[in-house]
Computed example of a mutant assay.
Amino acid sequence: MMKALYSGVSGLRSHQTKMDVIGNNIANVNTYGYKTQRATFRDIYYQTISNPSQASDGIGGTNSSQVGYGAKIGSVDTIHTLSGYSPTNKETDVYINGDGYLKVVDASGNYFYTRYGALNFDSSGQLVDSNGSIVMGLNGEEIAADNVDIDEASLTAIKIDIDKFSNITINSDGTITGVGLDSTDAATYNKVTTLGLIAISTVPNQAALKLEGSSYYSAGNNTGTITYHAAGLGGSGEIVTGGLEMSNVDLANEFSDMIITQRGYQANSKIITVVDEMLEQLVNMKR
């Protein structure tokens, strides 16, 4: 009888965690770049009452008898499916049309990966995201965007001399171009010049990325070797400017999961109530 009580408690805890995951998904239904999560259950432990026996002459075989002790959370997985493009009409907003992440570095020197492409050039010409972290890539005028691989050691914080160039544009391959304003520089004056390149990070096992909040992920032990490319190469998606990636939360799925989870919680709470009534009856047998 007490086993059923513990099973009910474990079921309540598991369903509470699943509801937490569902609630977080719904809260982030309009969060740009958010990837939905799911919680799965698994059984815990079984007490063996009798072991199976093998059939012999004149005696049939028997099966094992086991009693379980409830359920627990098996995993909380992030679903990294590509979501839709949401136009913002801001030229420095970027949407990665396929697999890939931006690599950024914060003020403390921590490196993160993100698909939230709300970017800006700050007053010093650094390409930063909405948290103030600097986007990583290549700087300089001589950049071959058709090179598939970019050495990680060569990545730098992207910085543009915004006072010397106008019409600064982020292109579909991640290159950053501008028109030279310095009349003393014949090589760039009044010419479209490549100023830098945004590196797109390709993660072999996206499910192993660790959620850090603020639309950031960090690399884990099971992500595999992360490689860097120009957008559209090396398995990464091209960049589309003027928009951001929508959340991939499916509200219909979340609400149906919410109902199922609520009923599961209700059923497990009923187990506890019934066991409590049975224990009360047992205690009251002798008066």
Rank of each mutant, 00 (worst) to 15 (best):
I176A: 05
M136N: 02
N171G: 07
I260V: 14
E91Q: 15
M1K: 04
M278D: 00
A55P: 15
P52V: 01
I150K: 01
Y95M: 07
I198K: 00
N284W: 06
G224F: 06
Y45Q: 13
S201A: 15
S50M: 12
L211Q: 13
V105Y: 00
Y46W: 10
E91F: 08
G232H: 05
A153S: 15
T62C: 05
M1L: 12
I26L: 15
V249P: 08
G132Q: 10
E280G: 15
D161W: 06
G61N: 12
G74V: 09
A208E: 07
G242H: 08
I73F: 09
S172R: 13
A153H: 03
I73N: 09
S256C: 05
H15V: 03
G74Y: 09
V192Y: 04
S172Q: 15
D99E: 14
N63H: 13
V275M: 12
G11V: 05
D163V: 09
Y85Q: 00
G68E: 00
I271S: 03
V67H: 02
G174Y: 06
F165V: 04
T177N: 11
N24V: 11
T169A: 11
G33S: 11
S64H: 02
K164S: 14
M1E: 09
K191L: 11
I73K: 11
T156A: 11
I49P: 01
S124I: 10
S10P: 04
G180F: 07
R287Q: 11
D99Q: 14
H80I: 03
Y216C: 06
M136K: 11
N25Y: 06
L279R: 01
A252P: 02
T78P: 10
E238S: 14
A199R: 01
N171E: 14
E245M: 01
G23F: 12
V104R: 00
S86I: 06
D43F: 06
S247C: 14
G98H: 02
N89Y: 09
I134D: 03
N24I: 05
N110G: 10
L102R: 01
N205A: 04
S124L: 13
M246D: 13
Q37S: 15
P87V: 00
K35A: 03
N147Q: 14
N30H: 13
A118G: 02
